[in-house]
Design a protein around this nucleic acid. Structure first.
Lengths: 202, 202
DNA sequence: GCATCACTGGACCAATCGGTCTATTGCTGT
DNA sequence: ACAGCAATAGACCGATTGGTCCAGTGATGC
């Protein structure tokens, strides 16, 4: 989620070229989309020549996009684990995820979109991208389901709670981006609760 | 939300060129994004030459994108009114919105993204697009707030319920798109309830 | 010292991008 | 019949796109 290279190409480039490419791609794609980001801009941000890109990623832009999405997804998984592991209950873990994400937005000052969806939602023709995005999203959900079960929820409850959480998170992410207000995400935790209490309302 | 022209350019083109351009743009932009859609493809879908585009929309692609987003937003506003007007309570209206949207997805078979966000989320440099997207989203919310108040909710409750509804809808829209399963949106109505009942959980 | 090889730097390419411009078409009012 | 004008049709443009290719470059093993 943090972007080391965004501040500009470091003079002594502490990161290997491959990593700088991935970081630049992850940052640019989720701000301007996959199609909206040109290779020239991407390479300038990473401080790497075109030859390096096609050396590390033989299939070029699309390979890099997958790698960047994987990297961003791993960052999110780490945030999930860091938030839920010390939590006494599911709700507190979910709340911490919201607050950590909101703080990240405030710190970097940029209202980037969800890195996975921004990178990989590229038309119905790009089936491989869609499948990969689905894989990463379900990875977030199943990681959360595992935490939910560990914290005492039954299997079906855990599944419902995790799905509900990411629906809220994605929707809140979007509204927060529209309003440029991280409090939208922080306020989400008010609505995170086991679904059983809600079903009586239907 | 329905797309008359998507089935291919009609031989006797019953719609005026300007409308065909808007419809084609709305359909393509929300499937492939603004940057991901080329003018050539767009004009082929609309069955119009390039001269017509720049006659009806002097600023070209960006003008057309704004018009297409406006059109799509109006469609959504009509769906909101059609759903909430006959509803006895807020929850039933919200449920109807979900079901109508899910049915639209099933009918057209395409898992398009939200037309406004897909069209107008184009990097932080495109401030005009961002502002316009915010305007349209807030339009949906305020229209829903009006219905909520008409259906008996107090002002703060109505605002919270409407915002919560669109957070769920956007998030559910995205998960439904990932899974290509319209039932995700249909299941959302279980979680739509006034926020007061939830605050006790915090 | 030399061969090897991962890596870099960038020239170069065809294709496509969004946009401009002009000629023409066809309806309208007079 | 003719003027006027909105609309259409598409040739054409420079810029930029993603991608290819090859000549270096520098560290490493021998």
């Amino acid at each position: 989620m943090d972007d080391v290279t965004t501040a500009g190409p470091a003079p002594d480039q502490p990161l290997p070229t491959r990593d700088r490419l991935i970081l630049a791609a992850a940052s640019l794609f989720r701000n301007k989309g996959y199609s909206g980001t040109g290779l020239a801009e991407l390479l300038a941000e990473a401080g790497a020549p075109k030859g390096s890109l096609y050396h590390h990623f033989p299939n070029g832009k699309s390979d890099l996009a997958l790698a960047a999405a994987n990297w961003a997804s791993d960052q999110m998984l780490q945030l999930i684990d860091a938030s839920f592991t010390p939590a006494p209950r599911f709700q507190e873990g979910a709340k911490t995820v919201c607050y950590k994400l909101a703080k990240l937005f405030d710190m970097q000052g940029k209202w980037s979109g969800c890195p996975v969806s921004a990178t990989l939602f590229e038309g119905p023709e790009n089936e491989a991208f869609h499948q990969h995005a689905a894989l990463l999203f379900e990875g977030w959900i199943s990681a959360t389901v595992a935490h939910a079960q560990r914290l005492g929820l039954a299997e079906t409850e855990a599944q419902a709670a995790a799905e509900n959480f990411y629906i809220l998170l994605q929707g809140g992410w979007q509204l927060a981006r529209v309003r440029r207000d991280s409090d939208v995400i922080r306020a989400l935790h008010l609505q995170i609760c086991p679904p059983m209490q809600l079903q009586k309302n239907d």
